[in-house]
Amino acid sequence: MKINTLLYTIRRGFANLFHNKWYSLVSVATIAACLFLLGLFYCIVVNIQNTVLKAEEGVAVTVFFEEGTSEAEEEKIGQDIAARIEVSKVEFHSADEAWAEFGPAYFGEDYQEGFPENPLEGMENYSVYLSDVSMQDALVTWLESIPEVRKVNYSAVTATTLSSINQLIAYMSVGMIAVLLGVSVFLISNTVSVGIQMRKEEIEIMKYIGATDFMVRSPFVLECMIIGLIGAAIPLGINYLIYDYIMNNLAGSFTSVISFLKLVSIDEIFRILTPVSLGIGVGIGFLGSITTVGKHLRV
């Protein structure tokens, strides 16, 4: 294709946008509304999931040792635990550290009086944090099989509940995003179809004159891709402003809620949401126009 033809195609794409300004506005509004809802839902789901994940990360399994286990053996066991894939973090607490932590809580500042020796002697332990709480049972079974391990403390109910919540959110969010995406694709491609249907005659004229399918199609495709791009950029901007406002302003007013919620940073959210939204907008504009124009090219 000659450069003149390419430039003409680009110019026509932009000219069509302005010439059919009402259609362009309606299309942009439809796409923007769909992608706004999609973006909003994504922000909510990601934050809920993050909150549950943070809660999961706080769930620890405590490992106590048999009497007479040497420090070297304890260290080796610590390394073996840390090497497991379901483990995110391992913390060693010596008996002295444990007494220094719990003593004041139970006996006040003078907790050492009346206890010439550390009453928690032999209670050194590992706190094992999981990256995936659903694998707690497997970890506990393995820990209990180690001869030097005397006792493993864990909460099966907490792990099961968090794991179930996480799964439920995952299923619900996949379902909701799929439905929203489906509705968006349907509405956007319908809008594109209606716009092209209105210009069926124009397409036919071009074909009678001897224009190739590419020449007929490309200005429409470009026009729809620009509409998709603008329609995706607007809700991205709005969602960004809303999210930024919540992060900066509401955090101060609802400190306890925000600390419980564990909000994901704005950069992290929009690092995924931006390419996905723009991709959907431009992609649907591209595919919708290609297929719809194609129906009218058999002239």
């Binding site: 003149n4 005659e201 224009a211 190739t212």
Partner: peptide, 28 residues
């Protein structure tokens, strides 16, 4: 082929020059 129709079939969003020039644009 040159084709002329009863209902003219001109591109309504373009002026006279653009309508005629379009036939030459398609053959580059």
């Amino acid at each position: 082929l040159g084709v002329v129709f009863q209902d003219f079939r001109l591109l309504k969003d373009r002026n006279v020059y653009e309508n005629v020039a379009f036939a030459q644009r398609v053959i580059e």
